[in-house]
Design a protein around this nucleic acid. Structure first.
Length: 398
DNA sequence: TCTGGGGTCCTAGGACCC
DNA sequence: TCTGGGGTCCTAGGACCC
């Protein structure tokens, strides 16, 4: 890393809620909650009443009776995210996306044509506001870590520059939970030793930190405490897993119902994988139970695939192997994740094409849905009219 | 705080190989 | 027959992030 502050961390403010306020003038300046059962996002007006992300909708409404609750519009958020990332990439090619609403930008190479980073950051904020209509906060610093912390401190709708000679003065008074990777468990463990600020962490030796929070987190914290963060901005990082999950509620579900949900989840994931031209080898089943305990089971296939029927078979096998667990504890959530992802183009073709005969069917179903919507083709079991609910994939040659 | 949906990374143990 | 150390892959659980 250089000796100048050239890394930007750009972070949209209350993203989903801000999109809603942008698209409906009646919501501007008012507390807005996105989501029904659970708060997916809250505008700053709603946060002022104490509403937080992931809070139960019921509690949020009690804290903020004036709030307007709107259902999420995922496609609008995806479109807004794309537009914002277009602005990022017009600023610099070195953009590393962190999530839909957040990215690092490296502008070190732009000095001669665009000037110092703080000016670039100010123009970026203006461009996002003018071209996409959303408020965004930008942190500017010498390292990713400092830039990320700076944007967090600068929120909302702010610009915060950490000059290289002011880094420790900026960091040391901050509470430990501001640090990336320090959640409730780690913060509590540090708190037991009286370590509450970053300055306290900086006074600890590496061995002491490792013994407190483990080798990886300990070394990481120690490095950050001594202001050592060599991680470069990496453009073009790809997802390493894709998944989908669904909460089932506390009502007991029949095995046929669970099977239909599971198959639907796999279908969703497989379709996304094919759209992204990726294939995966490891299928994981995620479960949550009545008592909120969790379990996961995984199976690794001999070859990567994005073939729905193959993935469904694997997921079903995992669920069948967990039947005792499900019967004893009551399933309240199922999820499926495919990992070990490889790029389609680099996947070795299976020569005998064993068990892969459904490829064309998958492509045909994807094409119908692309053109007519996801509901255009549905699994018979999901219509509730299937006579034999146990046979969850009547449309696939399985 | 009675809790959604999408992810990343780390740890630890076992299998297996050299 | 008993033994070392190292490496890789897989599985399960957990902390953490937005």
């Amino acid at each position: 890393m250089g000796t100048e502050a050239t890394i930007l961390h750009a972070d949209l403010d209350a993203f989903y809620a801000a999109v809603e306020q942008r698209d409906d003038p009646a919501l501007r300046g008012r507390p807005v909650i996105v989501g029904g059962g659970v708060v997916l996002a809250a505008s700053y007006e709603a946060r002022a009443c104490g509403v937080r992300t992931a809070m139960g909708g019921w509690q949020a409404r009690r804290l903020c009776p004036r709030a307007i609750v709107v259902p999420p519009r995922m496609s609008a958020y995806t479109a807004a995210s794309r537009a914002v990332f277009d602005v990022f990439r017009r600023t610099t090619p070195l953009v590393e996306g962190v999530s839909v609403d957040e990215a690092f930008l490296d502008v070190a190479g732009l000095r001669r044509i665009a000037g110092p980073a703080p000016g670039i950051a100010a123009r970026l904020r203006r461009d996002v506001r003018d071209q996409v209509g959303l408020p965004i906060t930008v942190g500017v610093a010498r390292t990713k870590f400092l830039a990320k912390v700076a944007s967090g401190v600068g929120k909302p709708d702010g610009l915060l520059v950490v000059p290289p000679d002011g880094e420790l003065g900026f960091l040391h008074p901050l509470p430990v939970h501001r640090l990336w990777g320090v959640g409730p468990v780690t913060a509590a463990r540090l708190g037991e030793r009286g370590i509450r600020t970053f300055g306290h962490v900086a006074r600890l030796g590496e061995a002491a930190l490792v013994s407190l929070v483990g080798p990886a987190a300990g070394r990481h914290l120690h490095a950050l405490a001594h202001n050592y963060d060599p991680r470069p901005v990496r453009p073009g990082r790809r997802r390493s897993s894709m998944g989908a999950q669904s909460a089932l509620g506390r009502r007991r579900r029949s095995p046929a119902e669970v099977d239909a949900v599971l198959a639907g989840l796999v279908e969703r994931v497989a379709r996304r994988m094919r759209a992204a031209a990726r294939q995966g080898r490891t299928v994981s089943l995620r479960m949550r139970f009545d008592d909120f305990s969790r379990a996961s089971r995984a199976h690794t296939l001999p070859r990567p695939t994005a073939h729905t029927a193959t993935l469904v078979r694997a997921a079903r096998g995992l669920l069948a192997a967990s039947a005792d667990l499900v019967a004893a504890r009551g399933l309240t959530l199922v999820g499926v994740t495919v990992s070990n992802l490889a790029d389609d183009r680099f996947v070795q073709l299976a020569l005998p094409l064993e068990g892969d005969g459904g490829r064309e069917l998958d492509a045909a179903v994807d094409a119908v849905r692309d053109r007519f919507g996801a509901a255009a083709v549905r699994r018979a079991t999901l219509t509730g009219k299937g006579r034999d609910l146990g046979e969850a994939m009547p449309m696939l040659p399985d």
